[in-house]
Simulated assay, not measured.
Amino acid sequence: MIRTLTEKEIEISGEKKIYGTLARPASAYTDEKFPAVLMISGSGPLDRNGNGPKGKYQLNVYKELAEYITKLGFITFRYDKRGTGKSEGDWISTGMWDLVDDAELAFKFLQNHPQVDRDKIIVAGHSEGTIIGTALSERQELNGLMLLSGGVGNLHEFTTYQRMLTYQELKNSKGIKGLLMRLLINEEKAETKTQKQTKKIIESNKDVYKILFFFKQPAKWIREHFAYNPRVGLKKVTYPVIAIHGDKDGLVDPSLLEELSSLVKGPSETHIIKDMEHGFRFQYEQKSMVNVKKMLKVLPSRPLNPDSLGVIESWLTKYFKADVSSDIKENA
């Protein structure tokens, strides 16, 4: 493994200026080319490193993944989505296809970079990024696709799974709390209410929809996500695809990944990693939706699950093995 890397901030001009970090394996040879990985983040106001605004939820998952992959001999590019970090725009009024546009600009940047091997550009999408990456694959000819903590399903399927898991978890609570939850929770009524509210949002022509005149919802984003089916894009894929999911991940239904091999035409792999949560870190506690926010307070202190890193390394090496010459030169 290459021990050192260099990082540089990049500005990409589009409808909104996007800022990101390009990481390269350390090399004294400026004409050396490397395979590249474009990282696409999950939902919400996450910056290039996977962190929330104003110091909230400092997870650094994309930073750590990028550093690991770069040291394998790959160029990586991760960027602040619209309205986060240094990038321009307002994240809550940004639609799904706006995010795809930005990902496409980042992909083209890598294609035109003098040190990137254009025949070895891989897109690694995390959570919502698995949907954005799949949509991008319908516009650009990728060479590989990594579906991290997501894949196959769309936003409607992901959020429905999360609600159902929450209902079940609350009703299975112990003691008085469990008894009350079993008496109070009616999944059918709750889903009917949710569907009515979602219908209002989808049928609106607003970018941002306010519930009770106060609670802002990303209407454009929801509307476009609900209309998109990633399976259509995956059926066009002829290159290697890998899906990696943690068995403690309560945000994405793992059964959806069973469809992957029947959808893509290229080689595919699906890995369920033991004791890994949505953000690729160790989680020994039970899978939970109720305690997600509580877990976010302790997860940053835990390392990325090494089993997931091993799977990533094996797959990247198998299909896009980097030229190890820079490592040899560095240690010569």
Score class of each variant (00 low, 15 high):
I69M: 07
N305I: 04
V232G: 10
H245E: 11
L256C: 04
T4L: 15
P218F: 01
G129N: 04
S261T: 09
L165I: 09
S149H: 06
L212S: 05
F34R: 02
D90Y: 11
D31A: 07
G178V: 01
A322E: 05
L142R: 01
D80V: 10
K297I: 05
R223V: 05
K329G: 06
E330G: 15
E224D: 10
A23C: 12
N205K: 12
M96V: 12
A227W: 14
G44P: 02
G44S: 05
K193V: 13
I75N: 02
G125C: 03
A106C: 13
E9P: 10
N205I: 02
K210H: 14
V311T: 15
L170V: 04
V37T: 00
S149C: 10
D323C: 07
E191P: 06
S173F: 14
F215W: 04
D275R: 06
S137R: 00
E313V: 02
I10Y: 05
E259Q: 09
K120D: 08
L212K: 12
E138F: 00
L165F: 07
H113M: 01
L183E: 06
R48W: 09
N51W: 02
T76S: 11
G175L: 02
Y79F: 09
D47W: 08
M1C: 08
D247T: 13
V100M: 10
K71N: 15
L180M: 05
L59H: 15
K206Y: 01
F215I: 12
L22Q: 01
G89K: 03
G50T: 06
I211Y: 12
K16C: 08
K287M: 11
L263S: 04
M276R: 04
W91E: 02
R281K: 15
V208P: 01
S262L: 15
R231V: 00
D275H: 12
F214A: 13
K248A: 05
E64A: 08
T270E: 12
T198F: 05
H271N: 12
D117N: 13
N291S: 11
S325C: 08
Y29I: 09
R281H: 15
E104H: 12
S326W: 00
V116W: 00
L170P: 01
H113T: 00
V324L: 08
I211H: 03
V232R: 14
L22W: 00
E128K: 11
N51I: 03
E313N: 07
G250R: 02
K248W: 03
Q111S: 07
I272C: 13
E330F: 13
T6W: 02
K81D: 06
S13Q: 11
Y161M: 06
D31G: 02
Q140K: 12
K8V: 06
M164N: 10
A124K: 09
V61Y: 14
R24Y: 02
D247V: 01
K235S: 13
